[in-house]
């Protein structure tokens, strides 16, 4: 049986179908070009670019990152080029590729998110918007949107009205009830939810007797968070009827299959891109191999396979 017999297509809502479920996570894949020497950009399920704000953001002071056991903490502070430069300098390159482009957006106010969505709605070559309501490293707004269901729903509703593009809401794990947050996004009109963003953590330099990161706290990512992410994807899939996109420490094809079997319709690879820039290709190849060896023709039949019909 050759590769063409495997159908890896998945539906992530709002009419957006991907050729395969392997996407890149925002903030770990630059604007695509950084990885052109290492991966086949055209054959990715989708590229999710570094989060864009209305105006450029310089990010946080250094140190911004530190390695932890099987993971890393980051407090980049959403450094990005801003909407205008993104459209002018980054979008033309990305539009030249076959894979769907998903633009992650972030703001300090509902108004800012609305402007961003409306601005991107006018551009060609964008397949969906991912609403980042969950970055832990900015002082204003972001965290409140990500932790209060009412605010998340209101924000989603507003952005929904500003664009006809498929809308994904990226959820924070730093909440007490992930199901409530997923439902808030669904009620607000989201076509899918993606989760998890990073878990808030910290590290202390015992020689200097102070936090390692200038921001004090940072977002924990990498293989260390995978079991937590998997549990939350399972719970979110319980809570909503829209597709769930799994994120959190996915580094191998086996990790990806776990998320799909937990109920994720697609997955995003994040921190693994940093230590293995070919990770997305290897994960896709691994999924194909698994399907071939197990005589599975259509990947979508495995979504939620571990749930026993639940």
């Amino acid at each position: 049986m050759n590769d063409n017999n495997q159908d890896l297509r998945v539906d992530i809502g709002g009419g957006l179908k991907l050729n395969n479920p392997v996407m890149t996570a925002s903030g770990t894949f630059g604007y695509g070009r950084e990885f052109e020497s290492f991966t086949e950009l055209d054959s990715l399920g989708a590229i999710v670019v570094k989060g864009i704000s209305l105006r450029p953001r310089p990010g946080n002071p250094p140190p911004r990152i530190v390695e932890t056991a099987c993971g890393m903490l980051n407090a980049i502070g959403l450094e990005n080029v801003g909407l205008e430069a993104f459209i002018k300098d980054k979008l033309p390159y990305l539009k030249g590729h076959k894979c769907p482009l998903i633009v992650n957006i972030l703001g300090d106010s509902i108004e800012e998110y609305r402007h961003l969505a409306a601005g991107l709605d006018q551009e060609e070559g964008i397949s969906a918007i991912e609403l980042n309501i969950s970055c832990p490293n900015v002082k204003k707004g972001g965290v409140a949107f990500g932790s209060q269901p009412d605010l998340a729903r209101e924000l989603t509703t507003t952005v929904r009205q500003a664009t006809s593009l498929p809308l994904i809401v990226k959820l924070s794990p730093n909440v007490s009830d992930i199901g409530a947050m997923a439902r808030a996004a669904e009620t607000g009109g989201a076509n899918a939810v993606s989760l998890i963003n990073t878990l808030i953590g910290m590290a202390i330099d015992i020689r200097l007797k102070k936090p390692v990161l200038a921001n004090i706290t940072g977002g924990l990512s990498g293989p260390a968070i995978k079991p937590v992410a998997l549990r939350m994807v399972w719970q979110a899939a319980d809570a909503v009827h829209i597709p769930v996109i799994g994120i959190g420490g996915i580094s191998t094809w086996q990790d990806a299959m776990e998320f799909i079997m937990a109920g994720a319709s697609a997955i995003q690879v994040g921190t693994a891109n940093f230590f293995n820039p070919a990770a997305v290709d290897e994960i896709q190849a691994g999924i194909r191999r698994y399907m071939r060896e197990n005589n599975i023709n259509q990947l979508h039949t495995l979504i939620g396979a571990a749930r026993g019909g639940k």
Partner: peptide, 25 residues
């Protein structure tokens, strides 16, 4: 510096500059 990727993706290997860049930092 501490560096996660080496290929401009993580934006973690920051040092402080004398002049302001186009992102305002």
């Amino acid at each position: 510096t501490m560096m996660a990727c080496g290929i401009s993706a993580c934006l973690g290997c920051t040092i402080t500059a004398r002049n302001t860049n186009r992102k305002g930092g």
